[in-house]
Simulated assay, not measured.
Amino acid sequence: MSPITQNPSHQRLAHAPGRPAHGHWILGPGAVGRLLAMRLADSVPVTLIGRRPPPVRLTLTTPEGERETRELPGATLESLPPTPPTMLHLTTKAYGVEAAIAALADRLPAETPLVLWQNGFSVQEALTRTWPGPVLCASTTEGAFVDDTPADAGDRAGDRVGDRDQGIIHAGHGRTVIGHLEGAYPALATTLAGILSAAELPCEAVEDIRVRLWHKLAVNAAINPLVARFRIRNGQLRDRPFQPMVEALVAELAAIMAAENIPSPAGGWSDRVWDVVENTANNRASMLQDVLAGRPTEIDAILGPLIEAARRHGLAVPALASNYRAMCPPAS
């Protein structure tokens, strides 16, 4: 892909002339969206947006066990604030991003910066090509999951979601990197990294976010489909019969990365994958959570780009293909 010319006007948090922008919109009130909203609320005005009314009150439980409850402005796609945002964070699943942007297009100035927090590597390139404003990609190791248990035991089953006090568990501290796929908009990325870091979400603006996303994609591809397919926690991949399955995937992934000229991590791909397995041994991967909840998974966003890259380079990837077929059975 040819380098994208950087427009100096996008170095600040842009908005359309005559329509003063205000705050950060966070589209997708799942784990990452709730964590962002809770952490950013002390620094910038935030609005949490969902298909249904997001919870009015959120309780954040920190990795240290501390609890913080606050009320946050919420909206749906049909009840957006009249003032456009300075920045839109997209924290929906990968398969929902383009539809969400289409639904918002007539409410957003073309210069609005987008921040993509998705797993995989599909919507990142697509929106970088098609959105007229800046598109930053984020990769995070922050651990979080949603706790929808009402805090008030008197809540009734018929209460609206927006009326209940709901939670977000910040399960583990991590780090976030952020940048443009072609290294554009460095000042904007640095500004946002500073905002996130000040909000207790350590973040670094990087020029090589494309490489970082490929690295995360490869690790996710070696772990997530297997644990979702066999409904196991990450640490169980160290047991037979799963360990040789992981190694077969790592060999195929290393070949794809080499063909794509993506540098391998220090210590090699096998060490990187097993380090992540070790560090997340008790975790239930997001894809496993989706399977257990009966939700669609991000299998296409994670395995799709890798299988397509293998096809382009004439590489045989039977292990990747087997996982893809297992997670995407043919329609009956």
Rank of each mutant, 00 (worst) to 15 (best):
S264R: 15
S264H: 14
P265I: 04
P265Y: 03
A266K: 13
A266P: 09
A266N: 13
A266S: 12
G267W: 11
G267M: 11
G267R: 12
G267A: 10
G267P: 05
G267N: 09
G268N: 04
W269C: 09
W269I: 02
S270Y: 10
S270L: 10
D271T: 14
D271C: 14
D271I: 07
D271F: 13
D271Y: 09
D271Q: 14
R272K: 11
R272G: 02
R272I: 04
V273W: 05
V273A: 01
W274K: 03
W274S: 08
W274P: 00
D275V: 13
D275H: 15
V276S: 06
V276F: 07
V277G: 01
V277N: 00
V277P: 01
V277T: 02
E278F: 12
N279T: 15
N279F: 09
N279S: 14
T280C: 08
T280Q: 12
T280S: 12
A281G: 10
A281P: 07
N282Y: 13
N282P: 04
N282D: 15
N282R: 14
N283A: 11
R284N: 08
R284F: 14
R284K: 15
A285H: 04
A285S: 15
S286V: 05
S286Y: 05
S286I: 09
S286K: 02
S286A: 09
M287G: 02
M287S: 06
L288T: 07
Q289S: 11
Q289V: 05
Q289C: 09
Q289G: 05
Q289H: 11
D290E: 03
D290H: 08
V291Y: 01
V291I: 15
V291T: 03
L292W: 07
L292R: 09
A293R: 14
A293I: 09
A293P: 08
A293K: 10
A293S: 12
A293D: 07
G294N: 06
G294I: 00
G294D: 03
R295C: 00
R295Y: 00
R295D: 00
R295W: 00
R295N: 04
R295F: 00
R295A: 00
P296K: 05
P296A: 11
T297R: 00
T297F: 00
E298G: 02
I299E: 01
I299Y: 01
D300Y: 02
D300S: 06
A301R: 03
I302H: 03
L303F: 03
L303N: 12
G304K: 02
G304S: 08
P305K: 03
L306S: 02
L306Q: 03
L306V: 05
I307D: 07
I307S: 04
E308F: 07
A309V: 06
A310C: 11
A310N: 05
A310Y: 01
A310V: 01
A310K: 01
A310F: 08
R311E: 11
R312E: 14
R312D: 12
H313F: 12
H313E: 09
G314S: 11
G314I: 10
L315S: 09
L315Q: 09
A316C: 08
A316I: 10
V317S: 01
V317F: 03
P318F: 04
P318C: 08
A319L: 03
A319W: 01
A319I: 11
L320M: 14
L320E: 05
L320D: 03
L320Q: 04
A321T: 13
A321E: 14
A321Q: 12
